[in-house]
Design a binder for these strands. Structure first.
Lengths: 175, 175
DNA sequence: ACCTGAACACCGTTCAAGT
DNA sequence: ACCTGAACACCGTTCAAGT
């Protein structure tokens, strides 16, 4: 394991344990038993570390969505459940993944397409519809993570309503 | 105009002009011709200032969604267009508004309900459906603002697809 | 009542220097 | 090749002191 990989790995632990604001150059150095300035021999900046974590997250969530646990609920309901569950288990990582543009240069080619493919399939190959579908899922998760729903809101019911709206008819783009 | 109100007003200008990271106690003080520590005589913390801006934003966007410019497109398409346009005009404010739990104590009572009412109406009074509707709109805006769609994505088409999905049938919650 | 200077405990980052 | 100490330009916030 290269030193750079160790840094990213420690960053992930800290991110998941104590949140983004705890991911500090001094804290990462501390965990590794070195001093903050030493990190810069292995990594260009804090942002570079965060970009690496973003890539990891896209890969992981993509893999999960592609996994077809046939035991699990299938189709839209299953994909939605896996998406939401992953986000709730890794809230800080999910936020990081969504709150900055993808660094498409660095991203392993094809990764983004692979991560999206299950959603595209659910949309019957319609890219616009797939993006709308992604947006509801993201919107529901983001509002839940941000604590923006009223305390008594039935979030499960909101997911059901969303799935309900998208499940009927796969007619294509109406523009 | 009380000093506190001036601080919040300056904070809004700075937020909209230079983004959240520019909203610094020292910067706000500077704009007002005083020193940073003086701000604490009028305001408890930076977070309190941001919470005030969040309240403003909810009120404004709510008012806009309730406005029924009959010249404008009506129904879901019109509301969606106004929602998106406001978010794109005030990106930093929109983010601020969505990225932290509402301070429901401080919020003028009824404000949240009023802001939501047009969406609830579009959902035929179904709260779960209304939340799903809100989530698509928020998801689409959030992904657009974060630069998370591929550069060649047709975002208008994604909105059309979302509207399309929600426009047919107002049958209620299927759980 | 309102404002200031000095300070504290933090940030990310740079750079000369050590091994 | 890898690490460190000292420093720079920042943060939010506190507090004694001035008017």
């Amino acid at each position: 394991m290269t030193r750079t990989a160790q840094i990213v790995s420690v960053a992930r632990e800290v991110l998941e344990t104590d949140g983004l604001e705890a991911v500090t150059m001094r804290r990462l150095a501390d965990e590794l038993g070195i001093k903050a300035p030493s990190l810069y021999k292995h990594v260009k900046s804090r942002d570079e570390i965060l970009a690496a974590l973003q890539t990891q997250a896209v890969a992981e969530l993509g893999e999960l969505l592609n996994s077809d646990d046939s035991a699990d609920r299938t189709g839209m309901t299953g994909v939605a459940a896996r998406y939401r569950a992953w986000a709730l288990e890794h809230p800080a990582l999910y936020n990081l993944m969504m709150r900055q543009p993808l660094d498409r240069e660095r991203l392993p080619s094809g990764l983004e397409a692979e991560a999206e493919s299950p959603v595209l399939a659910l949309a019957g190959g319609d890219r616009a519809r797939a993006r709308a579908l992604w947006a509801v899922a993201h919107g529901l998760v983001d509002l839940e993570l941000a604590g923006r729903f009223p305390p008594d809101a039935d979030i499960d019911a909101a997911w059901d309503a969303a799935i309900d709206a998208f499940e009927r008819g796969t007619r294509h783009d109406s523009r």
